[in-house]
Write a protein that binds this DNA or RNA. Sequence first.
DNA 1: GTAGGCCCTGACGTCGGTGTCAACGCCAGC
DNA 2: GCTGGCGTTGACACCGACGTCAGGGCCTAC
Lengths: 145, 145
Amino acid sequence: MRIGELAALAGTSPRALRHYESLGLLPARRDHRGHRDYDENDLRLLRQIRVLQDFGFGLEETRPFVECLRAGHPSGDVCPASLATYRAKLAELNAFIDELTQVRDEVRTRLQHAEAVTAPAPACVFNPLPEPPHRKAPPCPTPPP
Amino acid sequence: MRIGELAALAGTSPRALRHYESLGLLPARRDHRGHRDYDENDLRLLRQIRVLQDFGFGLEETRPFVECLRAGHPSGDVCPASLATYRAKLAELNAFIDELTQVRDEVRTRLQHAEAVTAPAPACVFNPLPEPPHRKAPPCPTPPP
DNA sequence: GTAGGCCCTGACGTCGGTGTCAACGCCAGC
DNA sequence: GCTGGCGTTGACACCGACGTCAGGGCCTAC
């Protein structure tokens, strides 16, 4: 099948596939006129790439999984290199989540402090109460999104 | 004070300060020879920028805080625009954390599944046991990092 | 013949926050 | 006068995963 076809099947773009090929991640056979020619197996590899990408894996990080599939394994994640990549990503995610959580708590604290110092709550918008004119109204619960 | 001096005091680089000026974030007076000339107040503004940057704020997101300080407020975060920026950042952080958490759980699940399918645990490295040759060894507890 | 549709390669643009040149000016100390 | 050290501006480099454009080829249908 041709590049546009495969791209559509995998929900991506021809440009992306050319990029993958340029990285050696998804090389393509060529037909008589030089057009890229893909088959069902390429679709499998491509789907593997896309799934991992959705998890935030970089393209290089998908390589072990793709190689694993190409080596004939029914699943891309059973090879040692894939497992190692999973574990590294997991550690990375955990570290990142921790960091972000700390930042969030700090920002939240600063926000609350600033709110307390600032003008005495202009009455929660979604629950307007006549407020006494000064200081320390109960914090507005997060309004419904 | 001169640019190198201020940069050193704030733990950043002259290049960064020039960049901030190019954004109109931290404009500088000039001395008789065209060199940038900063004072203590600029140092306050710069510190505000850096703190927020450490929290992952983009430079544009620090602008309300800097303006607030420049307007004479003792703290950069008491102005309405600063509060709004805090709230937006908080929402962004929460959304991001949630997303990352979901991804992490998914990755963890996949890892566990792949581990279970793979070679029957080549004996937990930090607790080697002679294993019967097939399937479903108890999962290695996460090895100490 | 020509228009449309798909394909090709190659190269530059994007986003943010600098790092790192290049080429120059100005001042102090020797 | 020359060197070193600081400053100046302007411009390009980086990271990643493509988007987008330019310029051209091949095939099919009208």
